[in-house]
Simulated scan of single mutants.
Amino acid sequence: MGESQHRLQSHFRDIIRAELAAGGVTTETHPMIHLFIENHAILLRDFVFSGVSLSRQFRVEEIERLTGDTTSMIRVDIWDQLKSHIETAEKQFQSQAGTLPKLLSAFEKPPGSWGSEK
């Protein structure tokens, strides 16, 4: 995976983690939530790169390989498209974030489970 993809996935991971924490969903309350976060970060990353790829002759990964620069996207026109798709993905996730705590209640740590006793 190129550095651009890794950075974008990390960006979405941080946003998802923050949105869930704002709704009271953390790794302490939902021990397996990291799997949900990682999966959705990958989905959002793929949404962004697919959106850019649909409007370009080359995919972002191919551009990185052709330019020999996997550390950053240096073409401004591609960055503008990435930024637009990133903002769309963030807004879409944030519009649904309020429903996540209820949907993720099945993943809560049971009361009195190991590690909750002090």
Rank of each mutant, 00 (worst) to 15 (best):
G2V: 08
Q9T: 14
F12Y: 14
F12G: 02
R13T: 14
D14C: 07
D14R: 06
I16M: 10
R17L: 13
R17F: 02
E19F: 05
E19P: 02
L20Q: 01
L20V: 09
A22C: 10
G24V: 06
G24Q: 11
V25R: 00
V25H: 02
T26M: 11
T27D: 14
P31A: 05
L35H: 15
F36I: 04
L44K: 03
R45I: 00
F47A: 09
F49Y: 15
V52L: 08
V52D: 00
S53H: 13
L54P: 00
F58R: 12
F58H: 13
F58W: 13
I63R: 03
E64G: 05
R65Q: 13
R65P: 02
T67M: 12
G68I: 04
D69L: 05
D69S: 06
T70V: 13
T71I: 11
R75A: 11
D77Y: 10
I78V: 15
I78C: 09
W79G: 06
Q81V: 00
I86P: 00
A89D: 02
A89F: 01
E90R: 09
Q92E: 15
Q92F: 12
F93R: 00
G98E: 08
L100S: 10
L100G: 04
P101D: 05
L103P: 01
L103G: 10
L104Y: 06
A106L: 15
P110A: 15
P111G: 08
G112L: 06
S113R: 02
S113F: 10
S113L: 07
W114M: 04
W114A: 14
E117Y: 12
